[in-house]
Amino acid sequence: MAKIPVTFTHNGTDRAAFADPGQNLLEFLRRGLGDLSPKYGCGQGACGACTVTIDGQTQLACLVLAETVQGRDVRTAAGLADGATLDPLQEAFMDHFAAQCGYCTPGMLVSARALLDTNPTPTREEVIEAISGNLCRCTGYEPIIEAILSVAGRRATA
């Protein structure tokens, strides 16, 4: 079957690539663009490891048809750092030991970034809600919640 041309923005850069019919966005990003930051956990929408934002909204890349990002703004965890300068969230995840095996971390970071972009000073409940679609099998979530809140606090007092 014919490949489908897709032009879109990937972490702020204009990109053009070919998607296979029926290909999901996760495979498209990983295999087609070499962005390995979104992870494959389940391919069923259950784990959130593949979370990306499309036009600012968190979505599950494994359940998005790749060709539908035509003309859209797709962001992944790989786009959070600015060269060697990490996003404050990434620093906070390190400071708070919010990553153990790290498999959930890119998805967590994307969900957290999306929350803070729309709500810079979330409550603890809002943080929990925002990452409720992301599973972590290592940390027990507390360090992740603390890390996100610490960035919110920093922003609030800055």
């Binding site: 929408g45 979370t51 599950l60 359940l63 998005v64 969900s111 809600e129 409720s132 679609g133």
Partner: peptide
């Protein structure tokens, strides 16, 4: 219905 990503989709 689901988590935030599922509600966005």
């Amino acid at each position: 219905v689901g988590g935030p990503q599922v509600r966005n989709m």
